[in-house]
């Protein structure tokens, strides 16, 4: 087991290096900070001096190593538009995004687990049909359109819920206020996650229900309920853990559009405004951070997977 973990950690290193390279390459492809300075009042000589100051006269691989060195010292660079350090900006915006995404993922499992299991146990029943059809529709609705529909109904027509931001402006923090602001964005995200999660859990459960040991349990006549709860669910845990693992990237990248529609003050909204104002250091900082989180997520999933399921081949 520990050999497997070490091996898996080692294989992540080239991917990590590759990620920093792609990140740097995109940043240099996107443009050169000098272009922003070019204008009638700046002479060529001034530009050249600035290029030397910024190290832009060096070949690109040297620039990459300089950047990497800074990165290892925890310096992600500075925003072009606000001059704040990118790491501070990310730290300031990460909490609202995590709050939003963790609640949405939890709600989606609360919806998807019972629906998926019920659907698998009662395969080909009317209810199964209805659940699967609904899940298809839920994952086919563009999240921003669902957001607009919900805002139209609950904020504009009924006036029940706020559609903008995280707290009511000009008031002091109040838990109920926060929850009210969370309802619509969490609903949009949870429904779209639940759509695919239901089908995933259903097929994982179906596979297990057809396994020999479950047929045996059924044949022994220990009762359907006990079969499902005792043998089925326990084994369904393996695919569910890997499902959670594949959804870790969503914690960071999944909410860009929904945050934009609801003006939720998180990482997504910050990234979106950086993208619009072409604030590359911020964009690249976020990309790098999320890529690393994904990498760690995959690692943890693989290791957990191997730990839960001892039959997996550890190679």
């Amino acid at each position: 087991m520990s050999r497997y973990i070490i091996k898996r950690l080692l294989s992540a290193i080239p991917v990590l290096i590759g990620i920093t390279m792609i990140d740097y390459l995109i940043m240099s492809l996107a443009g050169n900070p000098l272009e922003m300075m070019v204008g009638p009042r700046i002479s060529q000589a001034a530009l050249d001096i600035r290029a030397i100051q910024l190290g832009l006269d060096q070949p690109i691989y040297i620039q990459y190593f300089v950047w990497l060195n800074q990165l290892l010292h925890g310096n992600l660079g500075y925003s072009i538009s606000s001059y704040q350090s990118v790491s501070t900006m990310i730290l300031d915006h990460i909490a609202p995004t995590l709050l939003l995404m963790v609640s949405s993922l939890l709600l989606s499992y609360v919806i998807a687990l019972p629906c998926g299991i019920y659907s698998a146990v009662k395969q080909y029943s009317k209810m199964d049909y209805a659940i699967v059809t609904t899940s298809f529709v839920a994952s086919s609705i563009p999240s921003f359109f669902l957001a607009l529909l919900l805002i139209y109904v609950f904020s504009i027509k009924l006036g029940w819920l706020p559609s903008n931001g995280m707290v009511t402006l000009g008031t002091s923090f109040h838990l109920l206020d926060l929850v009210q602001h969370m309802v619509l964005p969490v609903l949009v995200l949870a429904l779209s996650f639940a759509g695919s999660n239901i089908r995933y859990i259903r097929s994982a459960m179906l596979e297990i229900l057809q396994a020999d040991y479950l047929r045996l349990a059924k044949a022994k006549g220990i009762g359907m309920k006990k079969v499902i709860l005792k043998h089925g669910l326990k084994n369904a845990l393996v695919p569910i853990v890997s499902l959670i693992g594949t959804q870790i990237p969503l914690l960071f990248g999944g909410a860009v559009i929904v945050e934009q529609v609801f003006s939720w003050p998180g990482l997504g909204l910050m990234t979106m405004s950086a993208i619009i104002s072409r604030d590359y250091p911020v964009i690249m900082g976020v990309c790098l951070l999320s890529a690393i989180v994904v990498l760690i997520g995959n690692l943890v999933t693989d290791i957990l997977y191997a730990w839960i399921n001892p039959t997996i081949e550890l190679r």
């Binding site: 990237p249 860009v256 999320s290």
Partner: peptide, 22 residues
């Protein structure tokens, strides 16, 4: 496959948005 892993590590929607900005 390592290259595929690298591309998959970036959240899909972020890659698309960044490319659309460039």
């Amino acid at each position: 496959m390592r290259f595929t892993d690298m591309v998959m590590s970036f959240p899909y929607i972020l890659l698309v948005l960044v490319a659309a900005a460039i």
